[in-house]
Design a binder for these strands. Structure first.
Lengths: 354, 354
DNA sequence: CTGAAAGCGCTAACAC
DNA sequence: GTGTTAGCGCTTTCAG
């Protein structure tokens, strides 16, 4: 037989306690104007029945669900999942539930159904945590319908009047290349991520700008494109060695590619960091155990996620309290440089962990 | 000023179309008994207004939310996030939304608030995707309240009358050790995960049993405990070298620890796989690019997640259609062995990718 | 074929 | 202090 859901209702509590539903409502909402005895009696009934108010019914009547929608993609990769984790923890702390949608592909452009699914469940806000790739932001400024709730974007190019929170990839790239320059490297190549990714372009631009600012020429023979995967790192580095033989160091746009670059370079008989210096990006937990340990740029996805949630909630609260809508701002969070052996040509390496 | 949510309601559609809400309801639910003209007229109004039925209101009245709650932990690790990804994609396909809760710690025992939060939002079922650790399953057979919806557990020890879906860690461990035996290794050590993890114990037990079944003695000097992290792998392997000097190979309980083991072994001047064979567990994307490439056990978390979602939905549907409740069963999905250089002592290595 | 009435579980506004 | 009425947005009877 069908086993009906066994939630008890406010009506049941009321009838058992011999009061009106209204009074029960006052108790569960901690409102005054209930006599201590009544309150106690009702509380007892609530405990006995294991009564729990329905968040659904409340959402309906209060026009507020305390739920935020999170849209993500590529959860099997470490970046997106760390970000999601940060969002989940921060939202929970703030008392919000999370409705999760994972896009099956990064470059989904058909976003209307996603929004509609979220809105039909009355989310109070949306965090768009899909990286900006190719044309997948075309819709930002002209959705075919009024979303009606705030949207905070992660990892995208800042725009006027749109709240964006992101790691400052450009700053990270500058840190990486400046560090190589300081270590005395002069012919710094670059292996980029897929150039239709905004993050990849930022890191590459930083590489170019930093070199140019230091008076170096930058030619197209000095970089190669990867696709973030270790496999693509090998191909890219081989290409680079061919087209840029003077190269004495490489800024690689992520650690996964850097892993296979370390391997390919070593296999070629070159020593790291003496002959070739390598800097990655991400600081994945394993990077410290590569051979040699990888210098890299650390992204604090947790913090970015937390900030995004806080921004979102600020906007929700402001709307709800009838205040002026907060002027959307972009927040770029600077990453940090983690120096390890793969780029340390000048320092005394024996003092470093290896 | 407060910007009210702008969703239009069935009432508005009805009044604009000049019909009752009931008729609109029939149209949006694709029911017969509406004249073609009326249907068309209403559909037009719906399109014009961008009307979307409220899933919340529907959930209330239908006593069915088409939402499942997912409880996870450690999303920043690759395993849990791959699993979540599989769940998200499978649930989406099946037309279910996901309400996500991430436990701040793996060993949370205070699960009542989690369930209550989920139930107050009327989830139709719950997928408990937190690994079994220490006492964190104590509550399974005596929750202080009736959950009332089906729960499917991932990654836990099978129990009577409880639906569990998991990778068969024991089978994976057997594959790993058998492979080492086939390659002619005879003194096989083990670096385990934290032994309060069920998965870690399964892998270790498989190691022990396989050796014993092949007529080898197994002493406590032949294994060491890690905590899944690369850092712990180093400590464990150093301990092993001390207490088990004859060791000629190691089954390491995950790839992250195996990474640092490869490094420590090499640093000691031993050759892999000639002097020491190594097998890991997980097949993380990077494992193929370790030095040497790592033989490992591949878990298909995607498939496990998909199966869990399917089981969950089967139970929900059965309940809902008033059928007998499905007898809960445990499903153990076998992993696969991925052979790479780190364990290949007998084969001609030149034929393998490196 | 279409509409009216009732109600899912809850709360806001008003009585008493 | 407490109860009554109305209604959030929708669907399920049941009339007509």
């Amino acid at each position: 037989m069908r086993q009906k859901a066994v939630r008890s209702t406010i009506k049941e509590v009321a009838s058992v306690a011999g009061v009106s539903t209204q009074t029960v409502s006052r108790v569960i909402n901690d409102r005054p104007d209930v006599s201590p005895e009544t309150r106690k009696r009702i509380q007892n009934v609530i405990d006995k029945l294991g009564y729990q108010p329905s968040a659904l019914a409340r959402s309906l009547i209060r026009q507020r669900s305390h739920t935020v929608g999170v849209v993500t993609a590529g959860l099997k990769y470490i970046g997106p999942s760390r970000t999601l984790s940060g969002i989940a923890l921060a939202a929970e702390e703030a008392g919000y539930s999370l409705l999760l949608k994972e896009l099956p592909r990064f470059d989904t452009n058909d976003v209307a159904p996603i929004f509609q699914a979220l809105l039909s469940r009355h989310v109070d806000g949306i965090i768009w945590a899909v990286p900006e790739i190719g044309e997948n932001r075309k819709w930002v400024n002209n959705l075919p319908f009024d979303v009606g709730v705030p949207i905070v974007y992660l990892t995208m190019n800042p725009q006027e009047n749109i709240p964006v929170v992101s790691i400052d990839n450009y700053a990270g790239g500058k840190m990486a290349v400046s560090h190589l320059l300081e270590q005395g490297y002069r012919n710094i190549g670059h292996i980029s991520g897929p150039v239709d990714w905004w993050e990849a372009r930022q890191r590459m631009m930083a590489w170019k700008d930093t070199l140019k600012d230091s008076g170096f020429e930058v030619g197209d023979n000095q970089w190669a494109e990867g696709n973030w995967s270790s496999a693509s790192g090998i191909q890219a580095v081989e290409k680079l060695f061919e087209q840029y033989p003077e190269m004495d160091s490489i800024f690689v746009a992520n650690d996964q590619m850097a892993l296979s670059v370390l391997k390919a370079v070593t296999k070629k008989g070159l020593r790291i960091p003496d002959d070739i210096g390598i800097v990655g990006f991400d600081n994945m937990p394993e990077s410290a155990y590569f051979r040699p340990p990888l210098t890299t740029i650390q992204q604090d996805q947790y913090n970015v996620a937390r900030v995004a949630v806080e921004e979102m909630i600020k906007i929700i609260e402001a709307d709800w309290q009838g205040l002026d809508r907060i002027t959307p701002k972009s927040i770029m969070s600077p990453p940090t440089l983690v120096v390890r052996q793969s780029s340390l040509r000048l320092a005394i390496t024996s003092s470093l962990p290896n």
